[in-house]
Design a binder for these strands. Sequence first.
DNA 1: CTGCCGATTGACTGGTCAATCAACCGAAGG
DNA 2: CCTTCGGTTGATTGACCAGTCAATCGGCAG
Lengths: 199, 199
Amino acid sequence: MAQAPPADKRRQILDAAVRVFARQGFHATRVSDIADEAGVAYGLVYHYFNSKDEVLNELFVERWSLLLAAIEETDRAGADPREKLGAVATFIFESYRHDPELMKVIIVEVTRAANSFGKTHLEEIRRAYESIAKIVAEGQESGAFRRDVAPMFASMAFYGAIEQLLSGWIFETIPASDADFDQARDLLVTTICDGLEPR
Amino acid sequence: MAQAPPADKRRQILDAAVRVFARQGFHATRVSDIADEAGVAYGLVYHYFNSKDEVLNELFVERWSLLLAAIEETDRAGADPREKLGAVATFIFESYRHDPELMKVIIVEVTRAANSFGKTHLEEIRRAYESIAKIVAEGQESGAFRRDVAPMFASMAFYGAIEQLLSGWIFETIPASDADFDQARDLLVTTICDGLEPR
DNA sequence: CTGCCGATTGACTGGTCAATCAACCGAAGG
DNA sequence: CCTTCGGTTGATTGACCAGTCAATCGGCAG
């Protein structure tokens, strides 16, 4: 093989890391577990990454930047705020449907682990809340939403509700079927948006 | 001193643990940190607890049982479902106001760390969701709430929104003043309940 | 005064892992 | 055929820390 397409060991390691992190959690995962799962020597992990943390880092940044882009894109393109929030929810739910293990890792090990690991990423996480808050604020200006709720509050409640539902599925607190899935998203968005309507 | 009231070292250790866990996070905390903070010898921690985990355990169980009792008490006593949910939110918000460090530890290290530590307590956590779901279900029967939202969904969205707001304060994503505090609770409850009203 | 016993102390051990590094392999170029 | 060089290997090191345990303290009963 040439040096170009060597099965991309780096990617291989990242994918393996997702699986192992999802299965055992970040803390309980040894670097050797990642290497084993990837079918690669221990040391190679350190050839591509400086530390175990950096692996998780990379996974988070890769995915979160997509989320940020999606929210901002939605905001730019979208029509009324209710549809925008719907699109944001859809993106997050679809991310979970598409790769539950990765989402599990990101939610459990980064977003919610705001103390240990998430601290590093508070800034990026906050940026997402702010983008959502911006949508809410626009809705208030256009009269679609009540004005007595601080946009940032609404944003965090909205995101928190979504994350909690996903956590419910992740930890099987609530059962997940494909039907539940779309319905849950619609109900969530409907409920929150109705709650945000002017009285 | 008699053997009865020896400054209750056990309590002293628990209180110290709260402070240290809140400051450094559970994983980054060494047992010696707890002992130092409590002004007590290393070994004494193991005289009262079998492991570092058991310390966190105790803190969680102590607090969570209060929450469960409060929700159920509220349900038994309360009048209309909207008031009941308001009371539940109040209890949680007040818990935070009363002892932010303890709530930080419980939320960050147990509730949201559902993978590592929380797994042990999934059952108790779920019981809280179910009690809230019961309130929602009653509201639906009485016609106060729309019927097309599964009570368990509503419950998790409700709790998730609360937890996210608290997290916002904990990690200073959003500023906290006492006024914000009560207002936030009212707005949250209002918004969710309005969202749950029949259309 | 003495012996008992639970509370308290803190040095020490065993095991775990993240991170390092020197050696190896094989493709490409001369 | 030889050299070079980046990708790859995995044994080894060094740090860290939970949990153990033998020793000490101090109140109290006999």
